[in-house]
């Protein structure tokens, strides 16, 4: 029960930590994103109220920087590298396998249970290990579609416990 009411409290703490200073908007957004894994619309509205900024400005900043997400992301974010080296080694095959396994595709990049988000990135700088993917912090090199499915299964199992 305790953990349920924290959302608003932590938002207020973050705002206080940055002195509710409009000049620190980006840092505030970073902290909020770290807390929620994305920037909920309501949080942005509350930030704009507290900082005295027009909500359109806060929305603009939040959508400008690629590392801010406005949609909730999964607990596990999978980044499949699609740089040149990985691409020639069939990174698209990995993407397809993961999509199929998780029921993702098109605009849908996050699973309904908010466990996984799939994104492609350009060159993770590990071309020697191509094709590469990263699940949260963990780097998986020399991947095959089969190994992808195994890695996912492992996580799903762990989470089920």
């Amino acid at each position: 029960m305790q953990q349920t009411l924290r959302k608003f409290d932590s938002l207020c703490d973050i705002l206080d930590r940055f002195d509710r200073d409009p000049a620190k908007l980006i840092s505030i957004l970073q902290a909020v994103q770290a807390e929620y894994r994305y920037l909920p619309k309501e949080a942005l509205a509350y930030i704009s109220t507290s900082l005295g900024l027009p909500p359109a400005r806060v929305f603009g900043v939040a959508t400008f920087y690629a590392h801010f997400a406005l949609e909730p992301k999964g607990k596990y974010v999978i980044h499949v590298c699609d740089g040149t080296a990985c691409h020639v080694k069939n990174s698209q095959g990995l993407v397809k396998a993961i999509q199929k396994k998780l029921g993702l595709g098109g605009d849908k990049t996050t699973t309904d249970d908010l466990l996984f988000t799939l994104e492609t990135v350009s060159c993770l700088g590990a071309c020697g290990l191509a094709p590469v993917l990263v699940i949260n912090e963990d780097v998986h090199g020399m991947m095959t579609p089969q190994k992808c499915v195994e890695a996912l299964d492992e996580i799903i199992e762990r989470e089920a416990e």
């Binding site: 900024l53 027009p54 359109a56 400005r57 929305f59 603009g60 959508t63 400008f64 920087y65 690629a66």
Partner: peptide
């Protein structure tokens, strides 16, 4: 002094 519209996305 309203700021109803602004740039968004990139």
């Amino acid at each position: 002094g309203v700021g109803a519209i602004d740039f968004a996305f990139r």
